[in-house]
Amino acid sequence: MAEEIAAPQHFHIRWEEVLGHGRQKEELRRLLAQGRLPHALLLTGPEGVGKKLLGRVLAAAVLCQQPVEGAPCGLCPSCLAMESASHPDYYELTPEVRGKGTKIIRIEAIRELTELAARYPVMSDRRVLLLDEVDLMNEPAANSLLKTLEEPPGEVTFILVTSARSALLDTIISRCMPLAFGVLSKEDIVSALVRQGAAGPQAAELAALSDGSLGRALQLYASGGLERRDCALKFLEGLPGLKMTAVWREAESMGNWSREELSEWMLYFNMCLRDMLVLYEDGGSSLIYQEDCRERLAALLPSFPERKVFALLGCVREMQKRLGANVNLRLQLEGFFIRLRDVMQM
Rank of each mutant, 00 (worst) to 15 (best):
T162H: 11
P95F: 06
D170G: 14
D211M: 04
P72T: 07
P178L: 08
T94C: 07
D132M: 03
R30L: 09
E47A: 10
L28K: 12
A311S: 15
T245H: 03
G200V: 06
R111C: 06
A199R: 09
S210H: 05
E260M: 00
D188W: 14
L273R: 09
L42D: 01
R165E: 15
W265N: 07
R307G: 07
E4W: 09
C293N: 05
L80T: 07
L53Y: 01
L297C: 06
R341L: 13
G212P: 02
M244F: 14
L218D: 01
K243Q: 14
L160H: 07
Q219Y: 05
N143L: 08
L93N: 04
H12W: 01
V194M: 14
R175D: 06
E237Q: 14
H39T: 02
L63C: 06
N143I: 10
M177G: 01
L75Y: 04
L43R: 11
P38S: 07
L54M: 15
Y120K: 15
Q320E: 15
L239V: 02
P67C: 02
P178I: 13
M266K: 00
E227D: 15
L53Q: 10
I173L: 04
Y120W: 05
P46E: 11
E260V: 08
L184Y: 12
L323K: 10
D282S: 13
G55T: 01
I172C: 07
L262W: 09
L41N: 09
V57W: 09
L131Y: 06
S303F: 05
A192P: 10
P95Q: 10
T44F: 04
E133T: 03
C73R: 11
E27C: 05
S163R: 06
F269A: 05
F235I: 00
K234G: 00
F269G: 02
C293I: 01
E227Y: 01
A71I: 00
A7D: 00
G70E: 06
L136V: 02
D188R: 12
L267K: 09
L184T: 06
K234P: 00
Q219K: 14
I338D: 01
K52Q: 09
S263D: 13
L131A: 05
S303A: 14
L239M: 04
E96V: 06
S285E: 13
A61D: 02
L279Y: 07
C176Q: 11
R126L: 08
G45V: 04
S285Y: 11
V161D: 01
T171H: 13
A299Q: 14
M177C: 02
K321R: 15
V68I: 08
F304S: 13
S84A: 15
L218G: 05
V128C: 05
L169N: 08
A81E: 15
S303N: 10
S263F: 01
I13H: 11
D170M: 09
L75P: 02
A40Y: 09
R98W: 05
G99V: 03
A204D: 08
C293E: 14
Q9M: 11
Q65Y: 00
N326R: 07
N270I: 01
L28H: 08
S163Q: 12
K103T: 04
Q202D: 07
F181M: 13
V247H: 11
E264V: 04
P201I: 08
V122P: 01
R322P: 03
L267D: 08
L131M: 12
A118W: 00
N138V: 10
F337P: 06
I13R: 12
L301C: 14
S166Y: 02
